[in-house]
Amino acid sequence: MNTLTVSVVTPDGPVLEDSFEMVSCKAESGELGILPGHIPLVAPLSISAVRLKGESPQRIAVSGGFLEVRPDKVTILAQSAERPDDIDIERARAAKERAERRLQAKQDEIDFRRAELALKRALNRIDVVENR
């Protein structure tokens, strides 16, 4: 079975570097599945879970991320990326509630947008932990 080297890097350091058989993720324009031998590609990722399939499947919660594909290597550049074990679920839940409260309250556009993003990030983290 062909494999891809996947590395996930964030400003705080590399999160993961390993080989997998397939990367499937949600780009801004829709779902993407990457197999070995893919043509070079760059795509922005939405706040979502990246699913790495192979002998030891992984799910990683990314936000503010990018996907760079080369035929034998996939690099994910993200402002934050966490494995399920590294996620503080209590904090994510608290963030979710906070964001929901903010969305309820009437506020100007920027705050609304921020709360929306915060909610997305929190939901994504919770989702990754619960469906690991």
């Binding site: 801004e28 324009s29 070079p40 760059v42 795509a43 922005p44 760079e68 550049l77 402002q79």
Partner: peptide, 27 residues
């Protein structure tokens, strides 16, 4: 240099990538 495919297109990638790049420079 590898010639990339851009998904969805170059412009939109720049919209996301450049702010991130500037932020990374500051960091």
């Amino acid at each position: 240099k590898s010639a990339y495919e851009y998904e969805p297109n170059q412009q939109e990638i720049l919209d996301v990538l450049l702010p991130q790049y500037a932020e990374s420079l500051i960091f």
